[in-house]
C-alpha cells in the first residue's frame, strides 16, 4: 500500500478526515520551510509542497506571495528536492506531494523530473496546468515509479468527464470546492460542496477524495465528512504575517495546523 493510501486509512480508522497542508518550498527561507514541514508533520497527515513558479495562473494572492518570496530567496528545483529528502529523513516524515506548474517539469524533462522525485522520496504530484486527458502519459510515467499522479476535479467538470478522470486516477483525487483561485473565500455552502463530493465518491468508493480551496479554521469542521481536507492559503498567509511581524513562522504555522487538527477530531 502506498504511503498516501496508508495515511488516509489511518485517518479513517480514527473516524476523521486526513489533514493535508500546503506550503511553498523555500518560504520564508529554505531552512525555515523545512523546519515548518518537520514541525507541522506532527499534526498533518500528508504534506503538499509547492515548487514556486513566477507566472502562476491559478493561485490567489496568498500563495503568490509565498512563491515570490521563495523565488526571491533564490530557491531552485534542486533545493526543493533537497528539502523533500531532508524531510523524509526526519523523525516524523509524512507522505509528500509536490505541486506546481508544468513548465518547470517540462524544462527538466518529464522522465528526469519523475526520477528525481522518486529518488528524493516524493509520493505524489499535482500539476495545476496539465489537465486530463493531456496528463495521461505523464500520469502513466508517474505510476510506473509508484508516484501518485493526483487528478483534479472542479465544479465545472461534467459527469462524463468526471467518470473518465476517476477511472484513470491513482490513490487520490482533488476536488476543487468552488470557482476560484486558491485562497478565495468559501462562496459555496458546505452542504453543496459535500453533495458534489458524494457524487464523485459514489463513482468509486475506493478513491480518496480530498476537498481543497477556501478551507480555513472557520470552514474546516463543516467539511469533515470528506476523506481529506487541504489547507494552503491560510498557512501561506500566516507565514506572510509572521515575516511582517518578525515572528517565527514555524511556531505560528504549527499552531494553526494544531488547531485545524483539533477541529476535525
Amino acid at each position: 500500500m502506498s504511503l498516501i493510501n496508508l495515511a488516509f486509512k489511518k485517518a479513517k480508522n480514527k473516524k476523521r478526515p486526513a489533514l493535508l497542508t500546503y506550503t511553498v518550498a523555500g518560504d520564508s527561507s529554505k531552512k525555515k520551510s523545512l523546519e515548518i514541514l518537520k514541525s507541522i508533520a506532527k499534526y498533518a497527515d500528508i504534506c503538499e509542497i509547492g515548487f514556486p513558479h513566477n507566472t502562476p495562473i491559478a493561485d490567489g494572492g496568498q500563495i503568490q506571495s509565498s512563491a515570490y518570496r521563495a523565488l526571491k530567496n533564490g530557491i531552485k528545483i534542486k533545493d526543493v528536492f533537497s528539502i523533500v529528502r531532508d524531510f523524509k529523513r526526519s523523525a516524523t516524515p509524512k507522505p509528500i506531494i509536490l505541486m506546481g506548474y508544468y513548465n518547470m517539469i517540462y524544462q527538466y524533462g518529464d522522465n528526469n523530473f519523475i526520477n528525481i522525485c522518486k529518488k528524493s522520496g516524493v509520493d505524489g504530484l499535482i500539476v495545476v496546468d496539465l489537465p486530463y486527458p493531456e496528463n495521461k502519459d505523464f500520469a502513466k510515467k508517474c505510476k510506473k515509479k509508484n508516484i501518485s499522479f493526483i487528478q483534479l476535479v472542479s465544479p465545472t467538470t461534467s459527469l462524463i468527464r468526471m467518470k473518465k478522470i476517476i477511472m484513470d486516477s491513482h490513490d487520490m483525487v482533488y476536488y476543487i470546492s468552488m470557482l476560484s483561485t486558491t485562497g478565495g473565500k468559501l462562496k459555496v455552502s458546505p452542504e453543496k460542496i459535500l453533495k458534489k463530493y458524494n457524487k464523485i465518491k459514489s463513482l468509486n468508493k475506493n478513491k480518496n477524495i480530498v476537498i481543497g480551496f477556501g478551507i480555513t479554521e472557520k470552514t474546516i469542521a463543516s467539511l469533515r465528512k470528506a476523506d481529506g481536507l487541504v489547507v494552503g492559503s491560510a498557512l501561506c498567509k500566516e507565514i506572510s504575517k509572521s515575516v511582517e511581524n518578525r515572528q517565527n513562522p514555524v511556531t505560528n504555522v504549527t499552531n494553526i495546523v494544531k488547531r485545524l487538527r483539533k477541529k476535525i477530531l
Binding site: A58, D129, P131, Y132, E134, S154, T157
Partner: peptide, 21 residues
Amino acid sequence: KNGFWGGKFGGNFIPETLKKP
C-alpha cells in the same frame, strides 16, 4: 486534435476549472 500546431506549439495547458468554459 490536441490543439497543437506542428505537433508541439499551442495546446491547452489550463487548470481543470477552465476545461469546460
